[in-house]
Design a protein around this nucleic acid. Structure first.
Lengths: 204, 186
DNA sequence: GCTTTAAAAAGTAAGCT
DNA sequence: AGCTTACTTTCTAAAGC
């Protein structure tokens, strides 16, 4: 009887320690990614919901914490790519993506596909591009997406190409390499998306 | 004009069977030219047939998995070749081992480009997985027939998870109906 | 959950010339 | 810049960790 009581205390302590660890990890990764405090709170809520629904079983605390943060960024409209999130997590990208898909399904988050436009302000400002370039890039994304060019394409690559194109059009040229680095895609991807986009815009 | 169901092509058939006899895979690996057996990696011995092209995983229990064949007939033909090879090695094999088709992978073409973003929302985010950052295809789990469909921006699709030949055709008719109902097919 | 096998779809990536 | 190779996703059985 005493043993059972002790075990409950031990389990309860372990559970609280795990929750504390998860929340501190979310905080650490959120700081590293520079996301606002409100997003960390959304991530914490998602994590606690996953915990209550017993979704952690068979998965790592770190993996669920990272996936919760990735989901929170998307839910709040300031997405980070899986690559960016993986850079500050100790869980491989593949596991983050798989865990995200799982908790997203189980919690019924029903998040819409990531909109490439949501990457524009962040990528453009880290390249020190003007407001003009940002709105041009946004326009390019809207026009080319409307013509069906977005289906199946990576949102970061799509945004990167539009920013590259806009920087040329606004005489604030950045090289493909510079844009590729902030967006974490290859120059080849930017080149391919860029060609399709300028054609959709009626240039060239 | 062109019926999407007519574009269906079976790409892979997975089936399981058993010879009703325990096997010494170490010995079999020696006697069967071209056999791959790495028990440290995987408990099954891998044996490939050239015509029809298929790969078989042979286990110590005598159970066999055949995959890579392009039709159900090819599965039977490939397994028939393997049964004969084993008999040639003085291994007793049941007369007509039961062969069970476990999965059929097919491809097809809907004939129109697809707006996957609109489709994800239209088909219902709860039944759909569409993460273009990870994979360009939209994953749709259908209840009847119970299959999984991968849909691409080109209109090409993959149907998998079905066990009957008819599943792919029923699935194509059903998905075309749903996409048309949403006004999202060309 | 993982390990292995096969196959298609299309996007992305890496290595080599 | 291209070409080749390879990895991402879905499915399924098998035996064992």
């Amino acid at each position: 009887r005493l043993r059972k009581w002790q075990e409950r205390i031990r389990t309860k302590d372990a559970g609280e320690r795990n929750l504390q660890f998860a929340l501190s990890e979310i905080d650490r990764m959120a700081s590293a990614l520079g996301v606002p405090r409100s997003v960390r709170e959304v991530a914490s809520v998602i994590y606690r919901r996953a915990l209550n629904e017993d979704l952690i079983r068979g998965r790592s605390i770190e993996g669920v914490s990272t996936a919760a943060l990735y989901a929170a960024c998307r839910q709040e409209g300031i997405p980070r790519s899986l690559d960016e999130v993986a850079d500050v997590s100790r869980v491989p990208q593949k596991e983050i993506g798989r865990t995200y898909r799982y908790i997203s399904q189980e919690l019924g988050l029903e998040l819409k596909p990531v909109d490439p436009k949501q990457f524009v302000p962040r990528f453009a400002s880290s390249l020190q591009l003007s407001e003009e370039v940002q709105s041009k890039a946004t326009e390019i994304i809207d026009v080319s997406a409307e013509q069906g060019l977005l289906s199946g394409k990576s949102p970061t690559g799509f945004a990167a190409a539009a920013i590259y194109a806009a920087s040329l059009l606004c005489n604030e040229k950045k090289t493909q390499r510079e844009v590729a680095d902030v967006a974490q895609v290859t120059e080849v991807t930017i080149r391919n998306r860029y060609q399709e986009q300028i054609e959709a815009m009626g240039f060239r | 004009m062109t019926n999407p169901a007519d574009s269906i092509e079976i790409q892979n058939v997975v089936a399981s069977t058993g010879i009703g006899q325990e096997l010494d895979l170490e010995a079999l690996a020696e006697d069967l030219p071209g056999a791959d057996f790495n028990p440290d990696n995987f408990p099954g011995l891998v044996y490939r047939t050239q015509e029809p092209k298929a790969a078989a995983l042979i286990f110590r229990s005598g159970k066999i998995v055949c995959t890579g064949a392009k039709s159900i007939d090819d599965v039977h033909e490939a397994l028939g070749i393997i049964f004969e090879k084993l008999r040639g090695l003085q291994i007793p094999v049941e007369d007509d081992p039961e062969i069970t088709v476990q999965n059929i992978v097919s491809s097809a073409d809907l004939g129109h480009n697809l707006n996957l973003n609109a489709l994800a929302i239209g088909l219902g985010l709860e039944d759909v997985e569409y993460e273009p950052e990870q994979f360009p295809g939209l994953v749709y789990r259908m209840d009847e027939p119970e299959v999984v469909i991968l849909l691409f921006g080109s209109g090409k699709i993959v149907i998998t998870g079905g066990k009957r030949t008819d599943d792919a055709e029923e699935a194509v008719e059903e998905i075309v109906e749903r996409i048309e109902g949403l006004g999202l097919l060309g």
